[in-house]
Design a protein around this nucleic acid. Structure first.
Length: 837
RNA sequence: GGGCGUAUGGCUCAGUUGGUUAGAGCGCAGCCUUCACACGGCUGAGGUCACAGGUUCGAGUCCUGUUACGCCCACCA
């Protein structure tokens, strides 16, 4: 086979050429006839398609691709499916904006509804099924864009196993897993105090929260003769008790007695509880239903009544009071939001003399939904919960999992240790996996929430808002004696927490499941350790009593060069993923990504792209040279010391890169391969160039053949070492002279070089050192590198001189040296240039 | 309040189990263009390894403390 080396190799167009080719050839196809021991399976994070395409996503997904390509080359059959996470609130929001609609679940479904060309000013109310259709339409558009990006940046996914978290299969599996938990009693419906976002009017889970520092104030308030301090005086009407620490001498005598609340004159008990902190405020706290999560604990553990005043819309509920005066006061508060009510009640307390002194301004941490804009309230609602396995069990699993990097493990442990209560998986939203249950409606029209009608497993997935439960007819929906569908959807994490089971074909494709589960790798961001990683372990533990994967690779995050948040200005920004690839090339972008070890942050650094591009360019040019000597002579013996020294160094590089990859340290693997490659170009190529051409007198045919074969062997190995990082350019060069894809070639092993790599790497370094001295002399004399050298005297230790003697011929030719004199003695290199004509 | 990570020339980072004058790339300065490469090559200047103690014959590397930045967790009245 003859080589087909282009005259002017170029990087332009390699992404299009090779991504199309890999697609057409199904280069990364997964062979599902392989067995579990032969397979390396990856639980790919399904990107949230509602998010903007972000360089950070491209960066971290590329990290996984380095590992995947390495594993594939080392002989593993790689199962690397891709999925899209199109659940969730963000996609609802984008759908509303994009099409100018708003969901009104009370409306009937409209066939073939088409939104207007341009979104109108006032959103059009549409039914829930219509709204969901529009959400799906939008996600499909966004998904195409994502797929395009993943292909362009060279992710070697298996696209035929693509899944969507909102898709029929995933919905079905989510519902099936849910029903199994219901069956076992591990998922249950409960009316309980729940974290609630008043703007989006949905309940939330602990993992959805974040703290924000907010300005507030301590208000000192009299309950009879006891003074308490609170930041939320507007909750006084919801007060059910005061609580102090059992050992607090100031209040010991008062435990068991009662006081009366100011303004509302409600009798509340004074109680003792360990959680009360004597050094906070006046040491005694007001318990309301519910001000914060501690209130919930106190309420539960002290068996207190509920006195709720906060509505789901964040405004104080209208309530009946016995005393007309109290009623008049409360009526001033009803209908106001927390902030407005606080302002009013403080005025009233001041007038009544129950406010002691002025409020003391403070800043304190307040719980928010991470996407929300108002502080969370706690309201009592009916929700589906999943019961967590015991913490000890979860901690044990957290210890069994292999973390890359190891220090990320503590974050998972911290989270598990801080768990409170059960997992609320209910969201009062529209676009998500519905709960596959209905509730009977009594003849009196009352809904029986306690005996849900579950969907038959073989009917899944179902949508209870359109599907009818067994034994009922469609006409009985919402009728006395009929049924009502569960109105809510599952939390997006309730769905994605079964991703390893789902992609592995659990309950759907037992043959596949057998071959790929438990999976090998879970790559993911550090920001979702408490959610995706944690919930996945929970589900794995509940379903199988073990880990759903054995390794996790946690990536850091990307910031711009100013360490600030990346700007999201869409379109023309050079910092969009497509913009970066267009400007620098996919290999250069991947090179940049390869510079960050697992768990380490990175910035968008134009220099790194430049260096990556330079490497890719160098690969093209060095390959052109190495392959530019006609037919390969595979029988030529590698006899020259320089050649054997090079291969010895290459052999060490293979060992080093392989060890690094085995440790998930793709960065070091790239580093050693890259460093070797540059010295290959700068030193080795210069030393053997003339010999390889074979034009000068006195060069034996065998010496020339040795150089030419070494060049090819070294190139072959180096291309494979670099292939996971710069897959496009290495594939391009591979195609010039090799059959098939380099990405299906074997990862190099040290055994390949048996019999030809017994040289001494130090020999090459010694020669390069002398060459460097000659270059310096020429540079100082301001002459070209090809300027002739009259003589070079080298003195050094016996060992070094011995090495140089072996490679003297190559050295003389590379340096255009007239005479080279080697002597044993104090280290010295003297270079005398030939006189210029 | 508890914890994790980072701190090495202007910038981005390597520095393996403590061992001779601390490495690389970018940037910078200078030089070199026929024969793989100007989307290039070569050479050079540039660092008291955040700070303070300690262990040691010897510390960027180990120990203690401090500071700065980033992050995680916490029952935040």
């Amino acid at each position: 086979m003859s080589t087909a080396v282009p005259d002017k190799p170029a990087l332009e167009g390699l992404e299009e050429k090779w991504s199309a080719r890999w697609k057409a050839d199904d280069t990364y196809a997964f062979d599902r006839t392989k067995t579990r021991e032969q397979i390396y399976s990856v639980d790919t994070p399904p990107p949230t398609v509602s998010g903007h395409l972000h360089p950070g996503s491209m960066w971290s997904y590329t990290h996984t691709d380095f590992m995947v390509r390495y594993k594939r080359m080392t002989g593993w059959e790689v199962f690397y499916p891709m999925g899209w996470d199109d659940n969730g609130l963000n996609i609802e929001r984008r759908t509303q904006i994009n099409y100018g609609v708003i969901c009104d679940p009370s409306l009937p479904y409209v066939e073939n509804f088409e939104p207007p060309e341009k979104p109108p000013k006032d959103p059009i109310p549409v039914s829930r099924p219509n709204f969901v259709e529009l959400c799906r339409r939008l996600t499909e558009e966004l998904e195409d864009e994502f797929e395009q990006l993943w292909r362009t940046v060279g992710l070697s996914c298996e696209w035929s196993y693509l899944y969507r978290t909102i898709g029929k299969d995933v919905s079905g599996i989510s519902q099936r897993a849910f029903l199994q938990l219901v069956e076992r009693g591990d998922a249950f419906r409960l009316e309980a105090p729940t974290l609630w976002d008043v703007d989006f009017q949905t309940s939330l889970a602990q993992a959805d929260l974040e703290d924000r520092e907010l300005a507030g104030a301590y208000h000192k308030i009299k309950f009879s003769d006891i003074e308490i301090e609170t930041t939320r005086p507007e909750l006084i009407p919801a007060c059910v008790a005061l609580v102090a620490h059992p050992d607090d001498d100031r209040y010991k005598a008062r435990f068991g007695t009662t006081v009366r609340s100011p303004l509302f004159d409600v009798e509340v008990p004074v109680l003792a509880h360990e959680l009360a902190q004597p050094d906070k405020g006046t040491g005694i706290a007001m318990i309301c239903t519910f001000g914060d999560q501690t209130d919930v604990v106190w309420w539960r553990e002290l068996g207190l009544p509920v006195r709720s005043i906060m509505g789901r819309n964040g405004r104080l509920l209208p309530l009946e009071w016995d005393d007309p005066e109290v009623q008049a006061r409360y009526d001033e508060l009803a209908g106001r939001n927390a902030k407005q009510a606080q302002k009013r009640i403080v005025d009233m307390l001041r007038e009544s003399g129950d406010l002691v002194g002025d409020p003391k301004p403070i800043t304190h941490a307040v719980k928010f939904w991470e996407n929300g804009k108002s502080p969370l309230e706690i309201v009592t609602t009916r929700q589906w919960f999943i019961k967590f396995p015991p913490k000890e069990k979860l901690l044990q699993r957290a210890n069994e999992l292999h973390f890359h990097p190891e220090f990320m493990r503590v974050r998972l442990q911290n989270w598990i240790e801080g768990l409170q209560g059960d997992w609320n998986i209910t969201r009062q939203r529209f676009f998500g996996v519905p709960f596959p249950v209905w509730y009977p409606v009594g003849d009196d029209g009352e809904v029986d929430w306690h005996t849900p009608i579950t969907a038959p497993l073989d009917a899944l997935p179902v949508d209870p808002s359109t599907d009818v439960p067994p034994g009922y007819t469609a006409e009985q929906r919402n009728q006395p004696g009929g049924f009502i569908g569960d109105p809510d959807v599952m939390d997006t994490w309730a769905t994605s927490s079964v991703s390893p089971e789902f992609v592995s074909g659990w309950e759907r494709d037992p043959d596949l499941f057998e071959r790929v589960f438990p999976m090998d790798l879970r790559p993911q961001g550090q920001d979702i350790i408490r959610t995706w990683l944690f919930y996945t372990l929970v589900r794995g533990e509940m379903q199988f009593g073990g880990l759903p994967f054995t390794h996790t690779n946690i990536s850091g995050f990307v910031t711009d060069p100013d360490r600030k948040k990346l700007s999201k200005s869409a379109g023309n920004s050079e910092d969009t993923p497509f913009g970066l690839i267009a400007k620098h090339g996919a290999d250069a972008v991947r090179y940049w990504a390869s510079g960050a070890k697992p768990g380490r942050d990175a910035t968008i650094d134009p220099n790194e792209f430049k260096i990556g591009r330079r490497l890719a360019m160098k690969v093209l040019n060095a390959s052109k040279f190495a392959l530019g000597f006609g037919e390969e002579d595979a029988s030529a013996p590698i006899g020259e010391p320089v050649d054997r020294a090079l291969l010895a160094g290459l052999r060490a590089t293979i060992a080093h890169a392989t060890a690094a990859f085995e440790d998930y340290d793709y960065t070091s693997a790239r580093d050693v391969a890259e460093t070797f490659f540059w010295s290959f170009c700068d030193d080795y190529l210069e030393l053997v160039k003339t010999r390889a051409y074979g034009q000068d007198e006195g060069i034996g045919l065998e010496a020339t053949a040795s150089a030419r074969r070494t060049l090819r062997i070294a190139l072959d190995v180096q291309l494979r070492l670099l292939a996971p990082f710069v897959p496009f350019v290495t594939e391009e060069v591979w195609s010039w002279w090799r059959e098939g894809s380099i990405h299906r070639a074997k990862w190099p092993t040290v055994d390949e070089l048996d019999g030809m790599a017994d040289g001494d790497d130090a020999t090459l370094r010694a020669a390069a050192h002398v060459l460097g001295q000659i270059r310096r002399t020429k540079t100082e004399a301001k002459v070209g590198m090809r300027a002739p050298v009259l003589r070079v005297d080298v003195a050094d230790a016996e060992e070094t001189i011995g090495r140089l003697a072996h490679v003297a011929d190559d050295l003389v030719r590379a340096g255009s040296i007239g005479s080279l004199n080697l002597t044993i003695g104090e280290p010295l290199i003297a270079v005398e240039l030939a006189p210029t004509e």
